[in-house]
Design a binder for these strands. Sequence first.
DNA 1: GCTGGCACTCCCGCTAATAGAGTGCCAGTC
DNA 2: GACTGGCACTCTATTAGCGGGAGTGCCAGC
Lengths: 340, 340
Amino acid sequence: MSLDDRKLEVLRAIVEDYVETQEPVGSKALVDRHKLGVSPATVRNDMAVLEEEGYIRQPHTSAGRVPTDAGYRLFVDRLTRIKPLSPAERRAIERFMIGAVDLDDVVHRTVRLLAQLTRQVAVVQYPSLSRSAVRHLELVPVSTTRLMLVMITDTGRVEQRLVEMPGPVQDGDVWELRRRVNEKLAGQRLADTPPLVQKLVEDCDFERRAAMTCLASVLLETLVDRSEERLALAGTANLTRGGVLDFQGTLRPVLEALEEEVILLKLIGDLEPRTTRVLIGDENQIDNLRSASVVSSGYGPGTTIVGGLGVLGPTRMDYPGTIATVRAVARYVGDLLAQN
Amino acid sequence: MSLDDRKLEVLRAIVEDYVETQEPVGSKALVDRHKLGVSPATVRNDMAVLEEEGYIRQPHTSAGRVPTDAGYRLFVDRLTRIKPLSPAERRAIERFMIGAVDLDDVVHRTVRLLAQLTRQVAVVQYPSLSRSAVRHLELVPVSTTRLMLVMITDTGRVEQRLVEMPGPVQDGDVWELRRRVNEKLAGQRLADTPPLVQKLVEDCDFERRAAMTCLASVLLETLVDRSEERLALAGTANLTRGGVLDFQGTLRPVLEALEEEVILLKLIGDLEPRTTRVLIGDENQIDNLRSASVVSSGYGPGTTIVGGLGVLGPTRMDYPGTIATVRAVARYVGDLLAQN
DNA sequence: GCTGGCACTCCCGCTAATAGAGTGCCAGTC
DNA sequence: GACTGGCACTCTATTAGCGGGAGTGCCAGC
């Protein structure tokens, strides 16, 4: 038996009411609040079917119905009415972001904004290094045998790292190294650099070979492999909304998960351009976040993606609203980056 | 009536037991667990006095006693037996910190280490800019009219900021600006720079005056005033230990406070060299953290302080252990910085 | 295929009763 | 004078029992 239109309508009503009231919703309450044009008994029959199909369930016999993860899934995929952002929200975004002064600032403002608008936990990934291009590499001597390597990318990220040289380096050497490195790497996307770095060493004249090898290993190891991703987080206090009801009793597992960068990156990583992804319940594959949903989106100038951002909350969340907000913020940040 | 030795001993026993069991402690249990050499009745009399003096209280008639903030205060000030770190803990510190590769790494490892060892929320302040000295300033052209200003400090912090120039700048100009700025500011403590920056502008030849003015304003505004402090936070999941009993019901206010940089800075700021500060309950003057205590310490090379770090938990915390750990970690990080 | 009616189930909130822990006080002892 | 054992008292936490109510499933009728 397939689901006719009315059954879908019933499902939508259940989701909407449950999200709002946080209480199992019964047949009577449903017909009262929504003009379904049929009697409670009919709705009950529909509910029985929806339950059999796995879209809703009863916490216990003779309680109202609650959506299952599958129910939310169906709701998000087929029943979501696009909810345009209110003018107030649009204004809020602009007011919040205006005057952002550098990348750090943009990211911090964004994450706070998201947390505030959605009233959930927000996560913003810094522009990913591997998807950025090198704008300039700078070498600064900090002692006779140590250089500070500073990399500036086109997305505004600045990464630095100390390089321990094999022996004392002269100003002239630094100059030469800087010239060569920039010549080869400036303008290249980070992801494409490893072979170029390799080549740099090979092409180097003998006397600077050792120094360049040092530099190259730091370049490879640090700027590409390690610490490649950074994150900002905000709004953890929002987890306590809705009492202890969401997240089955304890926040502990959720808070633990939020401390793991790897987990967060997984949640908001691997996104398709121009789409907003919704992971419901254990779709996110993370044990600690069984009862959480994640709405995420990639951002970047134009249709490219340089990083991800998103929002985490209880499965019982306002999907249409959250999706709209996340999408709008992602777009706004992308435009902001495009201006640089 | 003053407190004789036995009464103090009773207070200590109460604090220790309560911290361990999280339950109000009664006279009988006390004499059983500690060899006080007197009968429960006697202890009860002592308790009555301690209560009158405000060091302990009863949650309700005929329950055991619980320490008040004043009780903890007395305990920390006069009754704390110094608890040396276990060899395992020492090893843990070293194992954790070894291989830290740059400042970011050091700070992140430190905050995680603290959270893990104390099983509380940990906060680490990045070396404060105002207490750092400029090691080098670098100017990197990113377009014809924009420079990236990068500042490297002796504490390892690297700050960068985009500077919008009044007009196109040539390589030679950049060179000259860089030379002048470094000549004047390198080696200076950040706190001392404002007048020097002022001087830089005044001493500048006419043709570069406009550019230098621009640069100077960014130097002042950004590197000294704004974003001067950064923080790392870890271990929020530890707030959920001890159920909902600590923090009177909700974590909400605590989580909210932890999101405010200003508040955190206040908690671990203004520290005396070589001391560990303990703020108990509302001694910290922050409404949201009435039922929290903070143990903090300054760190830095030698006896100087370049930043603060600390731990936040319920007033009912293991003070001797936490104090020892915080102190040890602060010292370790200080030594680490001294090596650079 | 929809509806009204009805019996049934189960949760929730209320009250009452009980056990237990701990106290304060007092009279007695060293 | 300080300490102790004994005792009555108070308050909490737990358990059990008992409607009220919301919601369901099913069935007969339209």
